[in-house]
């Protein structure tokens, strides 16, 4: 799948046994930057009291993806991706964010150094394995890189955190990474619809889980169902 490169930024890198030349349009560079930074932010933030920044970063990932895909898909498809990100952030955030609460600056002061350095490591790892994977997944390098990066951050987020909000965000990251690859591999509206629906359903499920975090509430639900019967 070819992309015309206009006003691109050219970068020669030598990775392992192979030498690659990245010619990226400026939109892709911005997109990659947005996705990379917002994913770092999502992984690094494990302050359970302040979720606004994580949700903003989640939404920015979709903006980054739109910039990456802008030369490939029609405006309608890009708009659907935009809406998926916007609605996803809104659905998860509805009950989780108190907009009247003052912004907590604790996060900025104690930016978890371990997680940020882990991100650097993973970033390097993804950069090094991407050319090998590109041999059998024929999509543009920038998108494949973004996808692998999102999947890796998603797995790390799910593994490292134990609060439901972070785990759901990790799963969404992972699935969005897969979605980016698959919509380029399967050019079918049905598949695109399926992927979008699954993404939104995971978001809805996440919101549902976050609304009922204690099993005490589920006990009430059981009792209620008994009474109804």
């Amino acid at each position: 799948m070819g992309i015309s490169v206009i006003d691109g930024i050219y970068l020669d890198t030598s990775v392992g046994w192979t030498s690659m030349r990245y010619g990226l349009p400026i939109t892709s560079m911005i997109g990659l930057g947005l996705i990379s930074l917002s994913a770092v932010f999502i992984l690094a933030n494990h302050d359970q009291g302040e979720k606004r920044f994580s949700l903003l970063a989640y939404f920015l990932q979709y903006i980054g993806a739109i910039l990456l895909l802008i030369r490939i898909f029609s405006i309608q498809i890009l708009f659907i991706i935009f809406l998926t990100g916007l609605m996803g952030a809104a659905i998860i955030g509805t009950d989780q964010v108190d907009f009247r609460a003052p912004i907590q600056k604790r996060f900025f002061l104690s930016l978890p150094l371990f997680r940020v350095s882990l991100c650097f490591l993973v970033w390097g790892l993804v950069l090094s394995i991407e050319p090998r994977i590109a041999l059998w997944i024929p999509i543009p390098d920038s998108i494949l890189f973004a996808s692998l990066w999102l999947v890796s951050i998603g797995i790390l987020k799910v593994s490292l955190d134990n609060d439901y909000f972070s785990m759901i965000l990790g799963l969404l990251n992972l699935f969005f990474g897969f979605q980016l690859v698959y919509i380029l591999l399967e050019e079918s509206s049905l598949v695109f619809g399926f992927l979008t629906a699954i993404n939104l359903l995971i978001t809805l499920l996440g919101a549902f889980i976050l609304l009922r975090p204690d099993s005490a509430q589920s006990e009430n639900e059981i009792l209620e169902s008994r009474e109804n019967s």
Partner: peptide
Amino acid sequence: LLTMPLFWVQRTKS
């Protein structure tokens, strides 16, 4: 995904 809410409200543990 359809079944997960049902599992969640009927859970007896964490």
